[in-house]
Every structure is written in C-alpha cells, then in structure tokens.
Design a protein around this nucleic acid. Structure first.
Lengths: 351, 351
DNA sequence: TTCAGTAATTTGAACGATAAAATGGAACGA
DNA sequence: TCGTTCCATTTTATCGTTCAAATTACTGAA
C-alpha cells in the first residue's frame, strides 16, 4: 500500500493554506493507490463499488479537483476547441453571436470548452489554429463563414488539426460541416410572397460576393422563374452596409415607374432600411408592400411592428456540429459528414 | 553534454510522422541542454547571444512549439481567463458582444486567452469559476453586468480566484473594476436636449431594477431638476422588452395632452420603438421631437436616419480591465483599483 | 600563474496526472 | 492439490516542461 505523498499537508478537510489537494492526497486519505483514485474518476467499472464510495468520500472531504494541465499533459488532449471571434467591422452580426453562445453550450454537453482568439487576416487565422494545436492548447477548431475558395479546410487537414465548420466550402475536400440552406430559405419566402399576390420583387444582397449571398439570390431567381415572373420584375440591389448609401439605393428603386412591392433581403438590418424608406413614403407595409428579412435577429420582433424573416436553426446547427466534432475526435475511422438544414420562415406583420 | 532524448525521431526537419518535437529534440539538435532551450524561450538574458541564435535556428528547423500543458503544469499557471457568455434571452445585447470581442483582443496583448462557458443561475456561475480555477484551467475570471447585491466579488475572494469586473458592485468589498458612468451619460444627453430647447421629457428604462438603470435615471432626474424643469414634465416609462407592450406604453404617453418632445432611453432598441411610434404619428423626429438611445449599437446608425445615442468606450474599458488583471496576477502587492469612464454623446439626426 | 567572481550551462528533481504492466487473491474445474 | 482464469488493485514508467542547485567556463585582478 502506498503511504507516501508528495503534497500531503497531513490535514483532513480542505487545506486552509490554499494548496490544492492532489490525487496523492486523496489516495492517502482513502488508503488506496493513486491509480485507483484515477480509476474511480476515469474508469469506475474497474473498481469495486465499496472502494468507489470510499474514494468518492475522500474526494469530497478534501475538495479534490483533477488538475487539467496534468491530465492534458499525460493524455495529450485538452478538451478545448478554438473559435475565432469574428471582427466587429461595425456590423450587426447577431447570428454569429447567437451561434457562439449556442456553440459554447453544445460543446459543454460533450465535455468541451471554447477558447477564443481574434485575428484580422485569413492567414493569421490559420497560423493561430496551427500554433494553438501545436502547443496542444486545443484539440480542434470550429469556424464559420466559409467562402468558395476557403483555404482553411485544406490547410487544417495538412496541419492535422481536426475541425468542423458552420458553412459548406464548395471545395473538393471532404470534411465535416453543417450549413443552413439559404437557397431553400429565399425560395420559401418568395413562394410565400407570390401566394400573397405580389408580382414585382426586389432582392437586396450585399456587395461582397459571398457564396452565402449567391445561394440566397439563386433561391430568389429560380423561384421567380419557375413562377413565370419576368426577369424585369426582379430588381437586384447590392447594398454596401452604409446607412445613407443604402437608403439612396432603395429610394431609387422606389422611384421607378413600376416599383417592386415585395422585398427580400440578406439581413434584418437591410430590411430595416427598406421599412424606413417605405414608411417615409407612407406606403403601408403589410398591405401595399411586403418586406422579408433574414436571421430573425432581436430587432426583427420590433421593426415595423414585427418583421417577417427567415430564421436559421442555430440550436440544431450547433448540436450537429458538436456531434460531428465528437465523432471525429473519438472515432478515427469516422467519415466526414455534411449536414444541410432548412431555415424557417417566420411570418409577422411586414409580409 | 546531454545527448539522449525521449522523443527523438532521429530526423532533421519536421517529423513526417506527425509527432510533435519536444524541447529535448531541440536540445539535441542544437547540442545544448534542455534547460538552455528553456532559457532561450523564457529568460534569454541568461544565454549567450550566439547560443540563442543556434537554439532559435533549431527551433525553427524542427518547428518546435512549447507544450502548454507541460508548461502550465510546471508553472501552475494557464494564461487563460474565464468569461461567462451571457444568456441570450432574446435581447439585443450588442454592447456585450462588442465587449467580448474587445476583451479577447485586449487580453491577447498581455498574453492571455478567453475561455467561455455558459450557466443559467448565479450560483452555477460562481461554482463554475471555482471549479475551473481548482482544476487550474484558468488563472482568473472576468465578469460583467454587476448588480447591487452581487455575490460574485465576495465569493470569488473567498475562493481565492483572481478577478476583475466590468461594472461596479456598490458593495463594501474592495476589488478591481472598470465601469462607465451612465449617470454622466444621461446628464450629457439631457443637457444637450435642454440646449436644443426641449422642455418636456420622457425617460425609458426597463422594469428590471438594475443599478445600471438607476444610475442612468438619476442622471436624467438630477439634470432636469438642476435646470428647473418641473417633475411633472418628466415621464418615466418602464418598458418590458416586449415589442407590443412597449409600443403601447410609448403610445399612451404620446396621447397625453402635453406629450414629451424629448426621449432618452436605456438602449437603442427601446429608442427604436419610440421612433417607430413617432413616425406613425407623422411627428418629424429631429424637428418636432428628439430621441436619444444608449450604447451606439450598429442599428443606431441606421435607425431613423441616424440615432443620437450615448456610446460606451468599450475599447478603453477592456484595455483597463486587462491592465488591472495583469497587475493583480503579476504583482501580489498591488492594490485593487476602480476606474470610472465617461461615455460619449454621439449626435446624429434624431436629437 | 592563480584565484575569486561572475556568466553560461547542465543536472536532478518536481509539477500531477494516466497508461501499461505487474501483483495478489478468490473462484473454479480437473 | 494444483494450475488457470479473472478481478481488483498496485507498481512502474512517462507525458514535456521549468525550478533550484550544481557544475563548468570565462574574465580580470593580484
């Protein structure tokens, strides 16, 4: 029987000196070996029930908590996932904020934590992932906002850093991702507006040519085409995320001889600009015009008496991401998997 | 000279097997002892310049990165700070999102990372702090949204977990904090509105009786009183963060015989409700009425052609928090410090 | 040339945990 | 009775780093 210890204070109960008890202290207190204590925590099936109970009691009495650094060092794992908190850039990015919260929660359920970092450039981002992984500070990476020519999957695979992404990458590389089908989202919105009798449309995208935008725009175009709406009756506006400019762009479309009556936009914030312009022209939204936003951010419930919008199922997104990540980290033979989720049209006053 | 190593692959350059090089590999490669490599990284002044150069070269050649878990275990520190990501609760909480981003950045500058976690209850929050600290997964805690009877400072001190807070706690306990003087903020706003000729006011707070709200309301009251505005000309509205209810409350005030012309609110979102009500009554904001928000969230730039609002200096807040935290962690004799910062009135179209 | 004093480097131990192998007993069938 | 199997537990080795102490190398003065 092991009766020596490195740290023992010779005291029962929580040491008043503030020195944290170690596994050796627990072993001594419970009159078992260090390894048995470890087994109680990590493989209780190997230990006799009464021994477990005795060790548990000692753990509680001493207030023992496993030292993560020691465990991590030995096991070569950290149970931490890196996430790059996206630059503010003045934008209202409520989906990403919700995502971060839900992701943190979903990862906690599988025993992981989120470690944040910032970085401006894409190269800096990947370097940081590699750096943190090389330091074994993280086990994996989660990233969002994928682009068509996204370098990250390829380079992370090359660096052997496990990852999952919120967003497809449309690349040849096979990796695990979860995405929301924006195309299906706008398709649903357009169908809804068609059913409400609208025949002249406007699509408000952003100038940055992202895949996300392209997909959503595609949903608009294909649905209108299928419904026989002439191409001339779809006005495409590329907003620049600058209040005054955007307002002018919207204003210009409304000044046309036959202005659109139904507006579908990439974000709730853009929808807000439309609402405000319509208001100032005394066009009654919900009756004479319809506006549909995207994301169902908190402002959506307030704007214009309730903004109709396309909600992304973020809770499901994060739960799936956590599942895929766990698969990847625990089962090396697991295959990459892509999950495409349908967004939901939330109908309120404006459409 | 040390010529043995535990991990050496016997290869030059980055091992193709994916096994990360250790400090021993570097030592072997540079023909120095393990400790010298460590000194190059942690105390270069103890090493001869040419030795440094040789070791650095080996580090680069092998692609060595220090193993954080091993370092943390040995030094008893993790260079990680815990932050509880606040519950969503449907609210638009853009200040807290900005705060998190800036905090991450500010901490990176002093060599720390942010570890996220969630928790519903206040007790759960403190337990998690203690748990993470006991596991030596974190060195300290940062929290925000302090309340008058905040338990956290007291309990964290009792648990010997270092911390700083965004927000005063108004308790007797002396600890390090940074806060924004909301009272001064509304004071500035009211003075601005008085100068613009307004004489009848409305203050829009929230029902939750937070200290933050009380302070801001105090700024309104005291400034109006000092200016000789009769108490009857200040209407206090306690909004509930539910669009329809809030709209009705605002509407009721506007239906009064002598309705207020100047509105100051706790958040930009509340200001949005006012703007929308004023719009629907064809009251021209900026001419016949003034609306001032709080926080300068991204919507502020869009709403009503530009919402006048009170901006919190978040960048300074986080920089100061990082400074105070570093003091506390590096210099045990440092005294707690409170920093109170002035917010800034951003004048736009609505006021 | 020697020696003290300092600078540079190395050695040995420790941080706190888990993996893998070894040990001791009880249960069992031959 | 003996060997075998199985279970519970202990022993030994190791993860990769830094600390503290010991050793070696260098410098300059006597």
């Amino acid at each position: 029987m092991l009766l020596e210890t490195k740290n023992s204070t010779g005291l029962l109960g929580v040491s008043p000196t503030g020195i944290a008890p170690t596994i050796d202290d627990v072993a001594l207190h419970a009159s078992v070996s260090r390894q048995t204590v470890s087994n109680v925590l990590n493989a209780p099936d190997r230990v006799r029930p009464e021994t477990i109970q005795r060790v548990r009691l000692s753990i509680d009495t001493l207030g023992y908590r496993v030292n993560r650094n020691a465990r991590n060092l030995r096991t070569g794992t950290s149970k931490v996932v890196a996430y790059r908190i996206p630059p503010l850039a003045g934008r209202l990015n409520s989906v990403m904020d919700t995502f971060l919260h839900e992701m943190t929660e979903a990862l906690e359920l599988i025993g992981y934590h989120v470690l944040l970092f910032t970085s401006d450039s894409a190269t800096g981002e990947i370097d940081t992932y590699r750096e943190l992984a090389a330091q074994s500070a993280i086990d994996a990476v989660i990233f969002a906002g994928t682009e068509r020519q996204d370098q990250r999957p390829e380079r992370l695979v090359a660096s052997r850093v496990p990852f999952v992404s919120f967003g497809r990458t449309w690349g040849s590389l096979n990796h695990s991702w979860v995405d929301v089908d924006g195309r299906a989202g706008t398709r649903t919105a357009i169908n809804h507006l068609l059913a409400s009798g609208h025949r002249r449309f406007a699509w408000l995208g952003s100038t940055t040519g992202s895949v996300v935008k392209d997909e959503r725009e595609l949903g608009v175009r294909e649905t209108l085409q299928a419904a026989g709406v002439p191409a001339a009756d779809l006005h495409v506006l590329n907003l620049v995320d600058e209040p005054n400019t955007d307002r002018r762009l919207v204003s210009a479309v409304l000044d046309l001889p036959n202005p659109p009556t139904a507006f579908v936009s990439m974000s709730d914030l853009q929808a807000l600009t439309v609402l405000s312009e319509l208001d100032s022209r005394s066009i009654v939204v919900g009756r004479d015009a319809a506006v549909v936003g995207f994301d169902d951010s908190p402002i959506a419930a307030y704007a214009g008496g309730g903004l109709t919008t396309i909600r992304q199922p973020i809770t499901t997104v994060t739960r799936e991401l956590a599942r895929l990540l766990k698969n990847q980290l625990t089962d090396p033979s697991s295959k990459p998997e892509g999950v495409l989720l349908e967004p939901e049209l939330i109908v309120r006053r404006t459409g």
